[in-house]
Design a protein around this nucleic acid. Structure first.
Lengths: 197, 197
DNA sequence: GAAAGTCGTTGATATATATCAATGCCATTC
DNA sequence: GAATGGCATTGATATATATCAACGACTTTC
């Protein structure tokens, strides 16, 4: 598959630059550890039961991850749009089988970093250690806020908060996936929306 | 207040050693950035509305953090026992007022790292960058699991999972705080426990 | 272009959990 | 050692949300 890697790497470069300063040489070394990949809508990057062997940086399109219940319904764990990272970090670091599936929400262009490349990368370009620290730090803070809201707020308030913060996502994400992300059924979200408007 | 700093720093040293390798000199430099502090049960390390100016490493005892609803009830966000870290990272990094309160669950001995000491520490001892990355990484993975369970499981299953993983905490944490942490009322948790046993 | 699937909505009902209220049990305090 | 306050339990009831079922509007597939 032919991929326009220039635009993809410039998206990564932009994101790195927002957090750390790299020399041209370092940037070059960083890039060499990534592999580009395209994914069509509904294709899977990771299937439940497989080991998550790579982290994905989204340069175009969108991914989402979810777990599957015994009854066959899904629970959305995360969305990832342009300039976001996606992986099942638990599986990635332990190399145990993943309980999550990662699927393309839209046609995607990704830069993949394989697990066995992470250590060499961090050794070669120590600033990446700092980049990852900041990345996790922000991800943790955001997730904790979500956790607080999920436990502390009723469904309607969770929805309105989500709207305020991430309302633009509503245009790109089917409503039933947002419902799942918020921890309610599609029916309930539909009724909430009617109430709110 | 007099504090036995030897035991406290050895707890920190042990924890650092589990993740990174430091020379004696580096370890020494690290220690210099920390300030010991004791806290009695029910005393506050951080009060809602104040800026979180320091991260706490627990060497003895336990802390917990919570937000307060308009109705005056609380939502437990996190517990921290020996060798765990506690802070409101959002406030710590943005220096905006915290929405969380951090309280001593038991008499505590803490090592505090002030916000303005973090950067100097990371510059002086770059391996600490790696330590923090691993710390956040693990915290993020654990929090994501909790998030999945909170959204995907009924209260009874959340409780039994919690028991399996953190059952030993039941001896140190009042039941109504565990209820809050699990996202249910104390009454509901009481009934669940009766059912389960 | 018909057929099949996907998605959002709406209604009727079921269920889990919250809320309110009362009680008893401890531990702490004076 | 009486009194107080915090905590867990239990019962009765209320409420939010899930579940089940049906329908219509679209889109995708063949």
């Amino acid at each position: 598959m032919q991929v326009n890697t220039y635009a993809m790497f410039s998206e990564l470069e932009k994101n790195l630059g927002q957090h750390i300063a790299l020399t041209a040489d370092e940037l070059d070394r960083v890039k060499r550890h990534f592999v580009p990949k395209k994914l069509r809508r509904k294709q899977l990057l990771l299937e439940q039961g497989d080991v998550c062997t790579r982290m994905a940086f989204v340069t175009k399109g969108a991914l989402f991850s979810y777990s599957t219940t015994e009854k066959g319904s899904i629970n959305v764990v995360q969305f990832a749009f342009e300039s976001w990272w996606m992986a099942d970090l638990y599986s990635f670091f332990t190399q145990e089988p993943s309980k999550l599936t990662i699927e393309a929400l839209e046609d995607c262009e990704l830069l993949l970093l394989k697990a066995d490349r992470l250590e060499p990368l961090l050794v070669e370009v120590p600033a990446m250690e700092s980049y990852l620290r900041i990345l996790y730090q922000n991800a943790y803070v955001a997730l904790q806020r979500r956790m607080e809201e999920t436990i502390g707020l009723a469904a309607e308030q969770r929805y309105t908060r989500f709207m305020e913060r991430d309302g633009h996502l509503l245009l790109r994400v089917p409503q039933h996936l947002i419902a799942s992300y918020l921890g309610v059924t599609p029916e309930t979200l539909s009724r909430i929306r009617k109430q709110v408007s």
